[in-house]
Nucleic acid binder design. Structure first.
Lengths: 220, 220
DNA sequence: ATTACTAGCACTCGAGTAG
DNA sequence: TCTACTCGAGTGCTAGTAA
């Protein structure tokens, strides 16, 4: 069944394009998957129950909306193949500097994270994050990066609360080494957070709204 | 079963690295695939019968060699995901000019091909091919390109013999537009053939052995 | 240790069909 | 037309076990 899920999502995504919405009957899906209408129907129900899709039974034909979980599955598979086939590519993201509200600083500075950054990334980060809003045209690339494994930083417990795990990706901006960091449990957002061992805003002479390109290495 | 084939090949390729050879017991494979040893054994037999792998029953552990068909499967899937997720990337190939033996000229000049080149590629090719031996480090990228669909040129019948179909990929060298052409039925080789509407050797001042970089667009 | 056969069972598929 | 239920058949799994 797992395979059917993957295959169906591939076909649905292909037909839905960038809007992730597709009108398709179970018979049509069946034909594309070379299976019976009944099985296609069962697969759709299954996808819905497992929150891969949303669906509305419009008039006659159903409308299927692909949810994040579906996209994650495809991007995950893509990354796995990239990794297996040793096609480590460098991705470029373009975006604009966004005003950080200082939350970054709060998290980064936590001993529980900072210790691991030094161990696993080999840098002692400047206590703060550079937030970049990624341009829409880079969405696919950003999703691809997000669904890769990256360098895992464990979550931990403060005496006050719980801090979740994050994952990091080696990157550079204008030749300056830095890391993208993503919370491990969070849904898609087009804002990325970047850390480095220096204050990037000064070093790169950035202010809110400045355009920049970030080169990300996914080596796995 | 199809899914098992794909999954097993993924795991085998991952363990085999660039040499495409791996020593693995059916029990180990079973563990990775989260299935029983017996099923893993059956899958291996199946892969062998369908020429995805070769195997020798060394001492105790078997030695598995991944064949072209396995790599093709993985690269095909990778391309499909690229296409579905609209991640058209530009690939760079590096290599050296190889002496063409004039066979290229014979094929290219055939009316059956030439007509289609004009129609489908929009160029009237110079009658000859630039042969480039691709450096080993670009093998993965070359395989990825080869397994993509490209622009299809139909095979045809001369009154003497049959000419097979070929597929083309838009590319450029130092800003000069050209096309990679691959016979549709042929096994992997590290030599690529390039056509353009001008004589590339003159235009780019190339001689045998000259280094060059080719940028290939896979847009699907 | 290995690989891989056989037997039995569980699961998934598609046909028929209802709503 | 659509979706999707039930049910019988067949496929493919795992356990046991031989070599």
């Amino acid at each position: 069944m797992d395979y059917n899920v993957y295959n169906a999502i591939k076909i649905l995504k292909n037909k839905s394009g960038s809007k992730n919405v597709v009108f398709i009957s179970s018979a049509e899906l069946a034909k594309e998957m070379k299976i019976s209408q009944q099985t296609a129907s069962r697969i759709i129900i299954n996808l819905y129950r497992n929150k891969f899709i949303d669906r509305t039974m419009d008039n006659r034909k159903q409308k299927i909306i692909l949810l994040e979980k579906s996209l994650d599955l495809l991007y995950y598979e893509l990354n796995e193949l990239h990794s297996i086939l040793e096609m480590h590519q460098n991705f470029e993201l373009g975006g604009n500097v966004k005003n950080g509200l200082g939350e970054g600083k709060y998290y980064i500075s936590k001993e529980g994270y900072m210790k691991q950054f030094e161990e696993k990334l080999g840098i002692k980060p400047y206590p703060g994050t550079l937030n970049v809003k990624v341009n829409g045209e880079y969405e696919n690339i950003l999703r691809s990066i997000r669904s890769a494994d990256g360098i895992h930083i464990e979550g931990f417990n403060d005496n006050e609360r719980t801090f979740g795990g994050v994952k990091c990706f080696k990157a550079h901006i204008d030749g300056i080494k830095c890391f993208l960091i993503f919370p491990e449990r969070s849904s898609y957002t087009d804002v990325i957070e970047i850390i480095a061992d220096i204050y990037l805003r000064d070093e790169l002479k950035l202010k809110d709204g400045s355009e920049l390109k970030v080169n990300v290495d996914i080596d796995n």
